[in-house]
Design a protein around this nucleic acid. Structure first.
Length: 704
RNA sequence: GCGCCCGUAGCUCAAUUGGCUAGAGCGUCGGGCUUCGAACCCGAAGGUUGCAGGUUCGAGCCCUGCCGGGCGCACCA
């Protein structure tokens, strides 16, 4: 039997170890990385098996080591600390890995033993009232990479996008267009469609604020006063509550004990607690007195804030022309008013065309797109079926209720609303609709939703509901939940605060990258500088968004992401470009070796230096990295793989001996056999880096 | 108040899912270009893994209780 890939080498090792212990198969054994490169390539730990056999791990390790000693496949075997470390014969290792890369080609990285399943991945989820922002960027890049990785692992993959194209926020842009910019269009203003509509949306917010202030300046002021007069008691109580909280926090910081838990208190502690309470109250009185000015200010501020919020709500609901018009638009939209529908369709098309341009620029794509304006209707049908089958029930006021178990076993069941009492749909209705439609259409095995961690509860509930509808399906639904993106200036969140729109952000990074290129290659034509800057900038953004595990909050420091020194996209791109420069030189001097079966058979892999063998071993780990990414639903393992390989390559490339002479010359290598080997190795690294970066959605360069 | 997540080197993050001596990047300090791209590389210092218990042959990882932070707990999306 010939060894065709690294996995077979691993299995051979495991099987031999199992046989040495008198077992039929390697169940209970698994390989891990050797402790370090000095001791070997791979290891097997015998701790858990020893426990099972009531034996000593080191004893088993020694037993296996002695069985491997005469085997020509291994050039070093060492039993230590309950591990058996081995180093594979170099020709064997090289042939296995080179053969795998050559044979798999563009599929390198898949798991040959995998039983393929049908997977769906949903990501991006744009709104049609504004352009993509930096939060969408993490989502889209993460989702695209995840879907690449799922397919690379060997599964059948369908990529989905869900477009939020209906609701009150869309109507705001439409009202702004009708009232303040009728007739404007991307053609007339020269703006990208999504930017135009986003600007109209902001314009609505601005005009609504103006409307409110105008009203508040006159009639509104008395309204606020009246509100404050009638609600003085509760306002002051509220203000007092905040002050008290502040006082208690200060006390706690100072080390005062406040966390008396009545339920856990022993009876003899009661007098102690009462004394403590009395002391606390008197200290609070003193604190209030000494913070007199502060207190009045806070009370005034707090009261005003609450009054304003309440008045603003009432203003929106009862006074504002703009908000009334928006509600009117929504009602007419739902009633299929032709005029409103036409405007809606027209503006949506603008936004979608603009967003599509951003997708193209990012190099991401989808196989199917769902529109909420369509799936919410299917959601209603699904809810109807649930009702008919008795899975859900109607409330006294007509809302459809689904009973979910309480958060803890002790809690009562919670009532989840699936349909409002007026029959309109809520958030979960449409997700139910799209999920069932996709399930019926594709009969998928697993589905992954790429959505921010703030929606964990929503998906938990969605999956619980679907589990009741299709038993067993809930467990096959997954939420790829990720953390937020922050810029040095402040927090970035989809529905609050300053929105950093994606195109402008990408422009900034790409221009900074182009400036780097220009400073080093001033002679290049402007278009070429822009092209390289674009690739480097995108690589910087994507790698930075993929190199952390999904849960962590990403602080996006542009300078850090663009740094050539460090764990960055540009660094990986540079390693690959430098490698390709060598290969070009080799082609030019006619010393190139071809990466095919014959070429590899010709190279003498026994000449591999330890550094080179290490690189081969790293190359071989792509299937492992991909498998880990699928297991964790997190592509960062692949980003880690790419960086490690780039790092090892750069190290190898620049290594020098004691006199400062290059240790690993390629083109200049005097020995033809070593040169051929190194060229083969570089082709393997090139293919692996290209493959890894492609999975991350990062386009590479030949020159930087 | 309840639920989920997080707390690891000065900073930002890993740790093959309970295993060998807890590793990287940045920053700091020191070193390396007459030869394939120095847009790089090498070395050093830096740790009571938030605290206190527990389970285990073995805990950064599992359990309990605290402390600190993030997110969530709508007939919003």
């Amino acid at each position: 039997m010939s060894i065709e890939n690294f996995r077979m080498l691993e299995l051979e090792f495991l099987n031999t170890a199992a046989r040495a212990l008198g077992r039929n198969d390697p169940a209970g054994l698994k390989t891990s990385d050797a402790q370090n490169a000095d001791v070997g390539d791979l290891a097997i730990g015998f701790h858990s098996l020893a426990k099972e056999l009531k034996s000593d791990p080191q004893l088993l390790a020694v037993k296996v080591a002695s069985a491997l000693a005469g085997d020509g496949s291994y050039v070093a075997v060492k039993a230590e600390n309950g591990y058996c470390n081995v180093r594979f014969a170099r020709p064997l290792l090289f042939a296995a890995v080179a053969g795998e890369v050559a044979r798999e080609g563009a599929a390198f990285g898949r798991d040959p033993a995998l039983k393929p399943e049908k997977w769906l991945v949903e990501y991006s989820g744009p709104n049609t009232n504004k352009p993509l922002h930096i939060g969408h960027l993490r989502n889209t890049i993460l989702g695209f990479a995840m879907s690449n990785v799922v397919r690379a692992h060997g599964h059948e993959l369908t990529r989905y996008n869900i477009v939020n194209d209906r609701g009150i926020h869309i109507c705001k842009s439409m009202v702004a267009w009708s009232r303040f910019a009728p007739g404007s269009s991307p053609e007339s203003t020269g703006e990208k469609g999504d930017h135009l509509v986003g600007r109209l949306y902001s314009l609505f917010a601005k005009k609504a604020t103006e409307e409110f202030e105008q009203w508040a300046a006159g009639l509104g002021a008395t309204e606020i006063d009246a509100y404050r007069a009638t609600n003085r008691a509760s306002i002051e109580a509220g203000a007092d509550l905040t002050l008290r909280k502040r006082f208690l926090q200060e006390q706690e910081k100072a080390g005062r004990k406040l966390d008396w838990k009545p339920a856990k208190m022993k009876p003899q502690q009661y007098p102690e607690k009462m004394a403590a309470d009395a002391a606390l109250e008197s200290d609070y009185a003193v604190w209030l007195a000494t913070h007199g000015e502060d207190v009045t200010q806070a009370r005034r501020g707090e009261g005003l804030k609450r009054a304003q919020a309440a008045v603003a709500r009432r203003f929106e609901a009862e006074v504002s022309q703009l908000h009334a018009e928006t509600r009117d638009y929504l009602r007419r939209w739902e009633a299929n008013d032709p005029e409103i529908r036409a405007l809606w369709r027209r503006m949506n098309d603008w936004v979608l065309a603009g967003i599509e341009k951003t997708y193209q620029r990012l190099g991401v794509a989808f196989d199917f797109v769902d529109y909420e304006s369509e799936v919410y209707l299917q959601g209603k049908e699904i809810v109807g079926e649930l009702l008919a089958k008795g899975h859900a029930r109607k409330n006294s006021d007509g809302a459809v209720i689904f009973e979910l178990p309480g958060k803890t076993p002790a809690d009562p069941p919670q009532e989840k609303v699936l349909l409002r009492s007026d029959g309109t749909s809520v958030y979960i209705t449409q997700d139910l609709g799209s999920l069932m439609r996709r399930y019926q259409r594709h009969a998928f095995d697993e589905v992954v939703y790429v959505v921010g961690s703030e929606q964990e509860l929503h998906f938990e509930q969605l999956f619980a509901v679907i589990e009741r509808v299709v038993p067993g399906l809930g467990a096959r639904c997954h939420h790829l939940s990720y953390g937020m993106v922050e810029l040095p200036h402040g927090k970035m969140k989809s529905r609050e605060g300053e929105i950093i729109e994606a195109d402008g952000f990408l422009d900034t990074v790409e221009e900074a990258a182009a400036a780097q290129v220009r400073s080093r290659n001033a002679e290049l034509p402007a278009e070429e500088i822009a092209r390289r800057g674009g690739r480097i900038g995108l690589a910087a953004v994507k790698f930075h968004l993929l190199k952390f595990s999904k849960r962590s909050t990403v602080k996006f420091d542009v300078d850090e992401a663009l740094d050539m020194n460090g764990r960055t996209g540009p660094y990986c791109l540079y390693a690959l470009a430098r490698l390709r420069s060598i290969l070009r030189k080799a082609e030019a001097t006619g010393s190139a070796a071809r990466l095919d079966g014959a070429g590899n058979a010709a190279v003498d892999a026994s000449r591999l230096t330890p550094a080179e063998a290490g690189i081969v071993l790293t190359i071989a780990k792509l299937p492992t990295a991909i498998a880990a990414s699928v297991r964790d639903l997190d592509p960062y393992h692949v980003a880690d793989y790419v960086y490690r390989l780039a790092k090892e390559l750069n190290s190898w490339y620049t290594a020098v001996d004691a006199e400062g002479k290059t240790l690993h010359p390629v083109v200049n290598c005097q020995d033809p056999a070593t040169r051929a080997l190194r060229l083969s190795l570089l082709r393997l690294v090139e293919a692996s880096l290209e493959r890894g970066l492609t999975l991350l959605g990062i386009a590479t360069l030949h020159e930087m």
